[in-house]
Amino acid sequence: MKKAFITLLMLISMLNAAQIYATFVVKPIQDANLAFISSGIVDKINVTVGSEVKKGEVLAQLENSDIKAMLEVAKTSYKYAKKDYERQLKIKSLIDEAKFDTVANKYEASKNQLAYQQALYNKTFLRAPFDGVIYAKEIEIGDAVSGMMLKTAFRIQSKTQRKLLLSFDQKNRNIVKIGDIFKYKIDGDGNGYSGKIFKIYPRANLDNRKIKAEVLTKNFIPGLFGDGYIISQIKK
């Protein structure tokens, strides 16, 4: 009896609420174009379209034997510069200050050079910026890439997290609020769904006089579209 009463109250509330028509497109929560920011030849590709990847996973790498060799040289120089610095530090009060400064400068320079070579080496690896799925692959082994002219290597999107990008008439800008329920259907899908608006864009589109809003959802394929009604508690 109590449940039926609550349901009745909800129905009355919905009847009194304004219903604003909106269309939408399904978008991934995270979506990125990935490119090498270093120049070189693609040496390895570890993923393809449809691959599920973890944040930080290596997707592809450039031929980097020369940079790796320079990194090893920098590591060796740093190793011995550090040893020399630590020896001189123990007897700092007994040696000429200028001599100690020379040793300290060499040590700092070798440390900076190592960091620089490590950064160059790291740039030869293209890593996933977040957990997701590769949905486009636009490089092959042997391709030349340039850090000066970025070329998309992969496109990645979040695995299951999606959002609906809504469009509704600007005349309803003062009616629609964050937290309003959006009841909708995907085109070609007979099921009904609902979600809450969590973002409203602060400007209208000049071409079609529409305002955009976003609703969180999951699992739908990006690119699907549909329509529905925003249930607002503010009457028109």
Rank of each mutant, 00 (worst) to 15 (best):
R155F: 02
K171P: 05
K177G: 08
L166V: 04
D169C: 11
A153L: 05
S158A: 07
K163G: 02
L166C: 03
R155W: 00
R173T: 15
S167N: 12
V145F: 07
S158K: 00
Q161N: 03
F168H: 00
S167P: 02
R162S: 01
R173M: 14
R155H: 01
T160E: 15
A153I: 09
D169F: 07
V176A: 12
S146R: 06
L150W: 09
S167T: 12
I178D: 13
R173V: 15
Q170D: 12
F168P: 03
I178G: 07
R173I: 15
A144K: 10
D169R: 12
F168T: 09
Q161F: 00
I156E: 02
K171F: 07
G147A: 06
L150N: 10
Q157W: 00
M149G: 09
M148T: 12
K151G: 00
V145K: 08
L164S: 00
K171R: 13
N172Y: 15
T152E: 14
K177L: 15
I178E: 15
T152K: 14
K151W: 04
K151M: 05
K171L: 10
I156Y: 00
K151P: 00
M148N: 13
A144R: 10
S146W: 02
M149C: 04
S158R: 03
M148I: 10
G147L: 06
Q161E: 07
K163Q: 08
K177W: 07
T160K: 05
Q161V: 00
Q157G: 04
L165V: 09
R173P: 01
K171D: 14
T152N: 10
A153G: 14
T160V: 09
K163V: 03
K151D: 03
L164A: 07
K151I: 03
F168W: 00
K177D: 15
K159M: 05
